[in-house]
């Protein structure tokens, strides 16, 4: 009985948070709703004996990744963050819902088609053993340095790339913009704006005056 209540309550938290993320107009609200979902997922981890992962989920996701989001939102200013716009990825809203429903339906059908959706071999060699002797973090650690040692070492490259990339992109640069709209003669500029796909358009690209302002702003 208890586990049903835990499941239902945490599922409700997860789904409310998820819908909140995509429905909230203010990105700060989205980030807070994301915390809610992450917390609900952590509860479900605990319900499934993944205690260590539940802790990591709260510490890394809620404690680091969401904070990073909030940092950037605050760095940009909430009003600016709110108006950020790269265009929608699909042309129409119904298309998006259709895609989502399609994904959901296909996953559910495939999962529930048979009586038993989990068909994999039960492991013997690296089984989860409950009890105090064999805590789950010890097993995870053991696996990280045996079966998954290569993947573990390779994440070093990944993290280096993230650091180098972030430093490179967030650097302040001086100099004049070389965007198509400022660099090219007037006629070519018009032609190019017409050709630029809607998705890539931002308010800045619309007028050259904005562009000039952007340059003066960027050179500070």
């Amino acid at each position: 009985m208890v586990d049903i209540i835990v499941f239902v309550v945490s599922a409700a938290i997860i789904l409310t948070g998820a819908i909140g993320v995509i429905a909230a107009r203010n990105p700060v609200h989205s980030a807070l709703m994301l915390v809610m979902t992450l917390f609900g997922v952590a509860v479900q981890f605990v319900a499934q004996e993944a205690h260590f992962l539940a802790a990591v989920q709260v510490i890394v996701y809620a404690g680091a990744i969401v904070i990073l989001f909030l940092f950037v939102i605050m760095l940009l200013g909430v009003d600016k963050a709110e108006e950020l716009d790269v265009g929608r990825l699909t042309a129409q809203r119904p298309m998006a819902f259709l895609a989502g429903a399609g994904v959901l339906a296909s996953v559910l059908v495939s999962l529930l088609a048979g009586d038993e959706s989990i068909t994999g071999a039960r492991e013997v060699g690296r089984a989860i053993i409950g009890g105090e002797d064999e805590a789950d973090f010890r097993q995870i650690g053991r696996l990280l340095f045996t079966d998954y040692v290569l993947a573990f070492e390779l994440t070093a490259i990944l993290l280096t790339i993230a650091v180098v990339g972030a430093v490179m992109l967030a650097r302040r640069v001086r100099g004049e913009a070389v965007d198509a709209d400022t660099y090219l003669p007037e006629q070519a500029r018009r032609r190019r704006i017409r050709e630029t796909p809607v998705l890539l358009r931002t308010p800045v690209v619309e007028t050259s005056d904005d562009m000039a302002e952007a340059n003066s702003g960027g050179g500070e």
Binding site: I19, T37, A81, V86, M95, A101
Partner: peptide
């Protein structure tokens, strides 16, 4: 949850979201 994420990514225009 995955589908909600898919829908959100497709309908929102804010890269942060």
């Amino acid at each position: 949850l995955f589908s909600i994420g898919v829908v959100g990514l497709l309908i929102r225009r804010n890269p942060l979201v």
